[in-house]
Amino acid sequence: MTEFVLQVNGASMRVEAPAEESLLSVLRYRLNLTGTKYGCGEGECGACTVLLNGKAYRSCRVSVAAAANAGITTIEGLERHGVLTPVQQAFVDEGAMQCGYCTSGMIVEATALLEENPQPTEEQIVARMNGNVCRCGTYPRIVAAVRRAAEGGRA
């Protein structure tokens, strides 16, 4: 067990964990930040996506030790003072979910995408989001939500 100080959503959080434990496991089961989801634990579904210094990572494939020096943003850290981000708002406006279990990962992935490429084409959205699974099959609405967010909510 090692003690780590993680920077999560702007707050310092102290946690003891084996260095090789995944960031996902630490977030969900040690820090009770359950907005980040487990879907496969193998980097194949994107449910666990978080931002490390603004870039999207599969938190099931990142060790807590590797994340210790980064600024971590989870789904819980996107909203500011009760105001949803444009991506979150676009998911609401498009009704871009069914069960909503993939939604955290989708929103975080899309947030990173728009940070890097504020005006993606539909093909770019599809290519970038392809690693995120929505078993409910809400893909067309998710694409529409990302476009809407890119267009400043006026899609």
Partner: peptide, 21 residues
């Protein structure tokens, strides 16, 4: 009518069964 409680799903607030603590 939009999905009720949709906000909790985009903020990570909704507690799914695996999220119960």
């Amino acid at each position: 009518v939009p999905k009720t409680e949709i906000r909790a799903f985009v903020t990570g607030e909704h507690k799914f069964p695996s999220d119960v603590v």
